[in-house]
């Protein structure tokens, strides 16, 4: 028999997770689609379900010296409207799904769902954001980049849930593009985020991440470090393209083919580098 657990508070939720292997239901915008059977029938689960979307203790946005803390049940709409959230996240979130979905869905659900097309992963990975994993035995932190390690693969133990996300604001100028087909259901075909900091024509920070072009969000610190310290006049577009080209390994699916995706990803990278050389990243 499948149990449906509706905890009254976080402590109760963690006690349940310690004893039962559960699906965690948050906003439901991924899980309800995945478990949908047909009109009038209940969604079909093959193990217990724990509902956390109503937990007030997980609904908050606050800021301290460590960063900006977003509780796991905080919805996109709250993030979009909060003065504490860096603009780059708002930009990315505004392009996710439709207003209705953004009223329901959460960023913790987007991370845990670990789709290569998960849009928030791109800025989270680029900006070194962390997840806090909490269980009855305590909590631990992990970079989002490590936490998601493949298609639907995350380093979550059965007794843990994501209790919060910690954003680390960076001093970067950003270039973001999401390429999809139709606004409201545009599952991303390719997304690109570049972040850069330039002082007196010298690159002080340089970061690139791609979504939907590999089993997880692409970011490579080795390549980034190579360009830190360079004068923008010595930045060679083809060198950057050649560095990233092998990391961009998209697949062909019903949305798009891999040649197209690779081409678009490289064109966006090129545009980013050209803008840097012309001194013009300002978004």
């Amino acid at each position: 028999m499948i149990n449906h657990f509706v905890p009254k508070n976080l402590k109760e939720a963690l006690t349940i997770l310690n004893k039962h292997d559960c699906y965690i239901m948050n906003g439901g915008t991924d899980l309800m689609v995945q478990k949908h059977v047909s009109t009038g029938l209940l969604p079909k689960f093959d193990k217990d379900v724990l509902y956390i979307n109503n937990l007030k203790e997980l609904d908050y946005i606050k800021k301290d010296e460590e960063g900006i803390h977003i509780g796991a049940s905080t919805r996109y709409v709250e993030i979009e409207n909060s003065p504490l959230i860096p603009n780059i996240y708002k930009r990315v979130i505004k392009e996710i799904a439709s207003p209705n979905i953004r009223n329901m869905a959460t960023i913790s659900g987007n991370i845990a769902n670990a789709s290569p097309a998960g849009d928030t992963l791109v800025p989270l990975v680029l900006n070194d954001a962390e997840v806090v994993l909490t269980s009855a035995n305590g909590e631990r932190k992990m970079k989002v980049d490590e936490f998601v390690y493949g298609v639907r693969k995350i380093h979550r133990e059965k007794n843990e849930l994501i209790s919060e996300i910690v954003l680390k604001p960076q001093e970067l100028s950003y270039f973001y593009r999401k390429v999809g087909s139709r606004k409201a259901e545009s599952i991303t075909k390719v997304s690109f985020l570049g972040g850069v900091k330039i002082e007196n024509k010298v690159i002080k920070d340089f970061r690139v991440s791609f979504g939907s072009v590999a089993i997880k969000t692409v970011r490579n610190r080795e390549i980034e470090n190579k360009y830190i310290g360079r004068n923008i006049n010595e930045l060679d577009i083809n060198e950057v393209i050649n560095d990233y080209a092998p990391l961009v390994t998209p697949i062909t699916d019903q949305r798009s083919n891999k040649e197209y995706r690779h081409k678009v990803a490289m064109n966006l990278l090129k545009k980013f580098v050209m803008d840097i050389k012309e001194g013009g990243i300002n978004e």
Binding site: H4, V6, S38, N54, P99, N100, I101, N103, M104, A184
Partner: peptide, 29 residues
């Protein structure tokens, strides 16, 4: 559609539009 893509099932929850086809009833308790 039953999958969150068409909005035919829109209702207001605390005055905000939701897709009721993706909302487990407990989320509106």
């Amino acid at each position: 559609c039953g999958e969150g893509e068409c909005g035919a099932c829109t209702v207001l929850v605390n005055d905000e539009p939701y897709n009721s086809c993706l909302t487990p009833i407990i989320n509106v308790a």
